[in-house]
């Protein structure tokens, strides 16, 4: 198989320093790059820990014992973190903790990474204006980052992650404080970025089913399910305590099925199942 075009995790185990048991247990993945991967699971299941590994934050910034391997397009953050880091955009679970603390305005915060990368002033001002418009922050550009509302702060965290146009996006619950329209626009935008690998942790199962190529379910540090949204949500184990998407619930109540006797999980599939029945 062509390692250059795949994400490969082999027997990956992670144990934070000082802990007796592993927080990630024997994770195995072999999947193409350039897709949207939705990561779902309950509290403490290891979603953020997995994000930290994917971004190289573990072991570079947070120390932990790792065994097994992780490569994406043939590269590993463990080999050359600095180079790896410039190709990733990361949104942490707590956006307020992600501010540089060095910028007086939202505009400066947005420009920060571009300046560090030596981007020209022209390009910077264009990109700042574009990404601010995209994320609904145009009116906030002159405001102090610390004074933003929770949802505005989260929009800023996303904007700073995407402004460098990285090949890999790692986003940990990036829309938890976003309003419904902003959330919908953001998930739609994800489908428009081509040739980018997106790892997104979210509890917005309805949105994930519309945009994700693949869903990974975490439970107690293990990757217990992976596959297409339709596959995964038609085979949930009650133990994982994960709900089905609204499309599925509606179809189940109305008994609208797809061929193969499965329930739809996304809007287009729902239409298909509806048309087949009505």
């Amino acid at each position: 198989m062509d390692e250059d075009k795949r994400i490969v995790l082999e027997n990956l185990n992670v144990r934070y320093s000082g802990m007796e048991t592993s927080q990630l247990k024997n994770i195995n993945i072999n999947t193409p790059i350039g897709q949207i991967i939705g990561i779902v699971g309950n509290s403490h299941s290891g979603k953020s820990t997995l994000c930290r590994v994917l971004a190289g934050i573990i072991p570079k910034i947070i120390s932990a014992t790792i065994s097994g391997t992780y490569t994406i397009a043939g590269r590993s953050p463990m080999d050359d973190w600095t180079a790896f880091n410039t190709s990733t955009g990361v949104v942490l679970q707590n956006p307020a903790g992600q501010l540089s603390g060095l910028a007086d305005t939202v505009a400066d915060e947005l420009a920060f990474d571009l300046i560090n990368q030596g981007t020209s002033a022209d390009v910077i001002s264009k990109r700042v204006a574009n990404v601010a418009a995209q994320m609904g922050l145009t009116d906030q550009l002159r405001q102090k980052p610390e004074s933003l509302s929770g949802g505005q702060m989260q929009r800023l965290a996303i904007a700073t992650a995407i402004i460098t146009q990285p090949q890999i996006l790692i986003m940990d619950d990036p829309t938890s404080e976003m309003d419904p329209v902003g959330r919908q626009q953001f998930f739609h935008w994800l489908t428009t970025v081509k040739d980018t690998t997106v790892f997104i942790v979210s509890s917005e199962i309805d949105d994930l089913c519309e945009v994700a190529d693949s869903i990974w379910i975490m439970s107690e540090g293990e990757l217990v399910s992976q596959g297409s949204p339709q596959d995964v949500f038609n085979h949930l184990s009650p133990e994982w305590q994960i709900p089905t998407p609204t499309v599925y619930q509606m179809a189940e109540k109305m008994n609208w099925r797809l061929t193969g006797d499965v329930f739809p999980v996304a809007a287009e599939e729902l239409k298909e199942a509806f048309d087949a029945t009505n």
Binding site: G41, N42, Q93, G150, D173, S176, E177, S203, Q241
Partner: peptide, 11 residues
């Protein structure tokens, strides 16, 4: 103020 933020389904 946004009590459900980041909670899992059982919570």
């Amino acid at each position: 103020d946004e009590p459900m933020m980041s909670l899992d389904w059982p919570s």
